[in-house]
Design a binder for these strands. Structure first.
Length: 316
DNA sequence: TTCCAGGGTAACG
DNA sequence: CGTTACCATGGA
């Protein structure tokens, strides 16, 4: 990872020290298209854990026990420009944010093998060219990815975003900057103390309320964490650990492996969106069966997660 | 009104 | 092991 501190300055606006920016650059790999990633991040107007404005992403983050707000935008020469807003974090924190961003956009992955495979694949051929440079946009926070996956179970994505927004704006923290609020996903210690009725009031189903609170308790008490999963030897062990959780089935387990742990081979094969995307790409009258999809996916081996996100992208 | 959404659990063979 | 009813809600 190369980070280049360019310069630092503060400026005055109306004779008031408005803000201090710490500018840093994030290097980007080959086969990376910032605007394709932006399009994915911008797919719902109801999104609340980041904001996109004028081709720039804004995100609030709690990291190393501190909250920071940053902005990320495309820059020339294969770089992204990172600005910290409202604070000027120390070096340690800046490095942590840079690491977060590399993970968020899956920057440290060589996609050459994926594109080589996809170019010759009947299902992926078109989408891999059309959305070339799109990365697996991850949800690095373990509690957040579990909540988001559970919220999204068996409901339309639009409603899932509505529920997430209610959860975040009711139980999360916010950073105010300028005239805008930037929200942080609720902490597990907050959700673990809730009664199901408090989530039912936000129109969560009773089941989902129970799942979320149960998982929040496990994360809060420390008996479940991302580090714990990462320490396991095999993906199968990771999967088994996730499947033990109430509310986590095959789809959710694979979704977490893909979106949080960044496993490019994780594959939610039963996903309805994936089925619809394949149906459309192949111009079929009906959705393929899971068995057919597994057959199609044989040539995707090792890149199932990337195949999935490119196909999901084609739905919007 | 019916059917489908980026599913999961529990009960049943 | 595979199948099935049930869960809850919003859109088309």
């Amino acid at each position: 990872m190369i980070s280049i501190p360019i310069f630092r300055w503060s400026y005055k606006l109306n004779n008031y020290k408005f803000s201090t920016f710490m500018i840093q650059m994030v290097t980007t790999p080959r086969a990376f298209n910032f605007y394709e990633c932006l399009a994915f991040l911008n797919r719902s107007a109801l999104e609340c854990t980041h904001k996109i404005e004028d081709q720039k992403v804004y995100k609030a983050l709690r990291i190393n026990g501190k909250t920071v707000l940053f902005r990320l935008q495309e820059d020339h020469l294969g770089l992204m420009k990172l600005d910290f807003l409202g604070t000027s974090p120390g070096k340690h924190l800046r490095v942590a944010v840079l690491r977060y961003i590399r993970e968020w956009f899956d920057l440290d992955r060589d996609l050459a093998p994926f594109f080589k495979m996809a170019a010759a694949d009947p299902v992926l051929k078109t989408v891999s060219r059309k959305y070339y440079g799109l990365r697996l946009i991850r949800i690095p926070d373990f509690f957040e990815v579990l909540c988001w996956a559970i919220i999204g179970q068996q409901i339309q994505l639009r409603f899932a975003y509505t529920l997430k927004r209610r959860l975040v704006e009711r139980f999360g923290e916010k950073i105010r900057y300028g005239s805008q609020d930037y929200w942080l996903f609720p902490a597990p210690e907050v959700i673990s103390g809730l009664q199901p009725a408090q989530l039912l009031a936000l129109q969560f189903s009773r089941r989902k309320a129970e799942y979320l609170i149960g998982i929040a308790r496990r994360v809060d008490e420390g008996s479940l964490s991302k580090a714990m999963l990462q320490a396991l030897e095999t993906v199968e062990e990771q999967r088994r650990t996730l499947l033990k959780l109430r509310g986590v089935g095959e789809w959710t387990a694979d979704y977490v492996l893909m979106k949080c742990l960044g496993n490019p081979a994780a594959f939610p094969a039963a996903d309805v969106g994936l089925h619809n995307a394949i149906k459309r790409v192949l111009n079929r009258p009906v959705k393929p069966t899971v068995a057919e999809i597994r057959e199609m996916a044989r040539s995707w081996e090792g890149w199932e997660a990337y195949a999935t996100i490119y196909l999901w992208r084609s739905l919007v």
